[in-house]
Design a protein around this nucleic acid. Sequence first.
DNA 1: ATAACACATGAATATTTATTCAACTGTTCA
DNA 2: TGAACAGTTGAATAAATATTCATGTGTTAT
Lengths: 121, 121
Amino acid sequence: MVDGLDRIRCDCSVIHGDTVNQVKAMMPEEEKLYDLAELFKVFGDSTRIKILWALSESEMCVCDLAFLLNMTQSAISHQLRLLKQSRLVKNRKEGKVVFYALDDIHVKQIFGQGMIHVQEK
Amino acid sequence: MVDGLDRIRCDCSVIHGDTVNQVKAMMPEEEKLYDLAELFKVFGDSTRIKILWALSESEMCVCDLAFLLNMTQSAISHQLRLLKQSRLVKNRKEGKVVFYALDDIHVKQIFGQGMIHVQEK
DNA sequence: ATAACACATGAATATTTATTCAACTGTTCA
DNA sequence: TGAACAGTTGAATAAATATTCATGTGTTAT
């Protein structure tokens, strides 16, 4: 039931024990919360935020993004790979050019909620 | 107008130039996007996600959180400082004990949008 | 006063990660 | 065929950061 790695409960914790145990019982799976953190981590970089913002306005190729953000194609490409792995962007190839676009309707909504928080002072 | 650090536009970019320039003109301030990334960065750690989730269920003291997440009080305290700086949690002191609670109605909404994305396979 | 407790904090360590650089793939065009 | 271009990728470097450890602050109770 209790393995050796668990923390000893402090006196304070014992006092509020019932509430804490109820919350513990309701806690989502470890993995689900981990995945959620991983998702937000992808949003937590200004380069990727700029890319996502740009793609929320228009589909774009890699060199367009590089020009827009004033960064190297390589740097942009690395970040696009991450964004694609997270299923936040998709791409289509047209000759030499690869166009990227948002791959999720939720992106704009997550974005929007964040903006509201940031804009409140 | 163009400083020496700007990227040279590739041929591709010149071709789609109008669209890209329009998007560039609409781009939010550098600082605003940076702040947005900083906000998401706070969500982008599984320890902080767990703390935020727990506090979305109930107000809690530091040692409750330490017990719940099976981590040291110190580690929790460090993360709570970050969360407070981002105005995502607030605290009130009652004797020796410091109770933390969510400080923003948007937290749950940002959380929810993220969950929806994660749960779609 | 002093001991115990809840929490905060600074420095150190270890890990993660963003960007750069160089090399490589695949496509177009002359 | 080969040169130019768009993009990708792996390794290296530099910077950011999560946790630990030791110590410090403020409160309560004896």
